[in-house]
């Protein structure tokens, strides 16, 4: 699905990613954990195509194509999705209108016909139910006046609508109460299939009780320094990151 090799990325001359390697296959869920400033959100932004970052070295192959060569919107149309840590409020643009535009631009790109208004609305109803998002929110301005939990559920709703091959959840759990966390996790688990994959970026192990990863990676100083099974997350929760730093120092 995605193969990241020796990725180096800088922002304003400061190197954040320093030779990151990661390979994810279809059907897998990977968790990326790490202390603050280790480069977790930078990785998400670089993969999504944010312009502020400069890629100085390395390659990213997404479904056989050079991801780094694509525009942000092209990556999305090819099936990459980023659930934002801080979803953006867009006054005046309705959730529905923007999603219809997004879906139809994607379909046009893939050479498919535009979706009928009827099918689209049926899909909105089905997918908003999945994350227990009030259908009224679907017609409101994007994220405007949404609570923290509603914003995160709206991210998963959009993910459900766009049916990505690879979803990156950037700290989707931060700021969520346990009920909202369950709803979000349930959405992600329901959407999981053998053809798609998920990267869960998180600070806390708690989310991984609900979205169970196949692999847990530790990102430190711009590199993946340790990879293990889901139990590694529990170990990190208990012992923090210092023991990994010590391991590295040896």
């Amino acid at each position: 699905m995605i193969k990241i090799q020796n990725l180096h990325a800088s922002v304003e001359g400061k190197e954040i990613l320093r030779g990151l390697d990661l390979e994810i296959k279809a059907g897998e869920i990977h968790a990326i954990m790490g202390p603050n400033g280790s480069g977790k959100s930078t990785l998400a932004s670089v993969l999504a195509g944010r312009e502020d970052y400069e890629i100085t070295e390395g390659s990213v192959e997404f479904d056989g194509q050079d991801l780094l060569d694509m525009d942000t919107e092209e990556r999305a149309r090819e099936g990459l999705f980023l659930a934002f840590q801080y979803p953006v409020e867009i006054p005046g643009v309705s959730n529905i209108n923007f999603l219809r535009t997004a879906l139809n631009e994607k379909r046009e790109y893939l050479g498919q016909e535009a979706m009928s208004a009827k099918d689209f609305m049926a899909m909105v109803r089905e997918k908003s139910a999945l994350v227990e998002l009030d259908p009224k929110l679907a017609s409101r301005s994007v994220n405007e006046g949404f609570s923290g939990g509603e914003k995160k559920r709206n991210e998963i709703f959009q993910m459900a609508m766009l049916e990505p091959k690879l979803a990156i959840l950037d700290e989707t759990d931060s700021g969520l109460d346990i009920d909202a966390l369950r709803i979000v996790a349930n959405g992600v688990n329901t959407l999981k299939s053998k053809d798609n994959a998920t990267i869960v970026i998180t600070h806390y192990q708690r989310l991984l009780d609900y979205i169970v990863p196949d692999y847990v990676h530790v990102l430190f100083d711009g590199k993946i320094v340790k990879t293990g099974p889901k139990e590694l997350a529990l170990e990190l929760e208990e012992k923090g990151y210092d023991w990994i730093k010590e391991e590295l120092a040896q």
């Binding site: 999504a48 942000t72 934002f84 953006v88 867009i90 005046g92 643009v93 997004a102």
Partner: peptide, 26 residues
Amino acid sequence: DEEAIYYLQTRGISKTSARNLLIRAF
């Protein structure tokens, strides 16, 4: 709002459409 344009682009909307959506909303 550049942040809003980027957000829309990550959903597959072209930069031009994203700008138009925002102008139109305005």
